[in-house]
């Protein structure tokens, strides 16, 4: 039977601006999916520009892919499928609010968005 494992690489993170998940060792796996879910999605869109990064040692990182997730109430969950990534993976990038979104967060009308990120691996 093939091995599989879902890692919660970020739990309830208040990402606003640059972020990077902790390094995750993936040498045993040949396929992976990063899932990112926004908890309590706000009515206004939040854009995440992301990079999937690989590493020979968990210390030095190179970009494998980049892309954009756009979160809103209809699209609270996004994913990126991966293969041929070697021994380490991490997800980094930047979360951007619109000016209106930031105004509402500062006024306490909307809760600061929180994120869950999962790395689902299969041998």
């Amino acid at each position: 039977m093939r091995q599989s494992h879902t890692a919660v690489v970020t739990r309830n993170a208040a990402w606003d601006g640059p972020f990077a998940t902790e390094p995750w060792e993936t040498a045993w796996a040949i396929e992976a999916i990063y899932f990112v879910r926004i908890l309590e999605p706000p009515p206004l869109r939040i854009v995440m520009q992301y990079r999937v990064e690989i590493s020979p040692d968990g210390i030095h990182w190179a970009e494998l892919f980049q892309g954009t997730f756009a979160f809103d109430e209809q699209n609270p969950l996004w994913y990126r499928q991966l293969n041929h990534f070697g021994g380490w993976l991490r997800l980094s990038g930047k979360v951007s609010y619109s000016p209106e979104m930031r105004r509402r967060v500062i006024r306490g009308l909307i809760r600061e968005p929180r994120f869950m990120a999962y790395l689902t691996l299969k041998s």
Binding site: A7, R11, W24, E25, A27, P56, D57, G87
Partner: peptide
């Protein structure tokens, strides 16, 4: 809130590999 979860490692290091 920030306790980190365990993973499988093959103990790879930058100077001598795995």
């Amino acid at each position: 809130a920030d306790l980190r979860d365990p993973m499988l490692s093959n103990l790879t290091v930058w100077d001598t590999g795995t």
